[in-house]
Design a binder for these strands. Structure first.
Lengths: 107, 107
DNA sequence: CTCAGTGCTACGGTTTTCATAGCATCGGCA
DNA sequence: TGCCGATGCTATGAAAACCGTAGCACTGAG
């Protein structure tokens, strides 16, 4: 079951957007998949390789969820790509990258 | 096994900080736990309730990972709280909240 | 009309997460 | 002193998620 802002998130009463986002992005490979799509459309097998050979089952499940959530879509050649909303999220995740480098520096 | 920036992340060769962050934050409840700690130290059972009664096993596992990663710590009263690094991450996650509201608005 | 490449699904085994019960400890408070 | 509720957390089996591999259907190049 794909989390969307309206519907209550897994393990939550209220459908608060942030909690739905946590539910969606807190699934394995979800963040990574979005990340690997940052440079334009990618085919299934290429995407799989970029994600360190994630198993196709999970990859396809995540792609389905992200598609249903409106973050990605498939073009006519079946390549997976970010939607405007997905690119928006991408930008929102930018500070996370900066943080991760501070994290690395501190350790 | 807790992901830290130096060590390679789960399912990754390189130990790129961003991938380690994805691994750490892509585990269930991890983001939520950090989020619920935004207002200061919280005890175990209170935190569990705020996280929609997450099972204590997972909560404790996540807390251990986040502690090992240096994002949270325990004060003398055993209450869980963000470290400076954790608060830093908190700030980095701020745009995500804004995004989630745009997401909700669009759906 | 092969043949390599692609998108994806089926299947069974392993890992993660879950729900519940319970232990040990620590204040109040009589 | 002995009880009582609350707290931090662990143990244990069941459910769900995830994984690796094999393979099907299709498409375009040669």
């Amino acid at each position: 079951m794909t989390p969307v802002p309206a519907r209550p998130a897994r393990g939550s009463q209220t459908g608060r957007p942030m909690l739905a986002a946590f539910d969606l992005l807190g699934r394995r490979w979800a963040l990574r998949i979005l990340w690997e799509l940052r440079g334009g459309p990618v085919g299934f097998r290429a995407l799989q390789q970029r994600c360190d050979d994630v198993s196709p089952t999970v990859l396809n499940t995540r792609l389905g969820e992200l598609r249903e959530a409106g973050l990605i879509w498939q073009d006519e050649a079946k390549a997976h790509d970010l939607t405007a909303l997905g690119r928006d999220l991408q930008r929102a995740l930018k500070p996370l990258q900066a943080w991760s480098e501070r994290w690395a520096a501190q350790t």
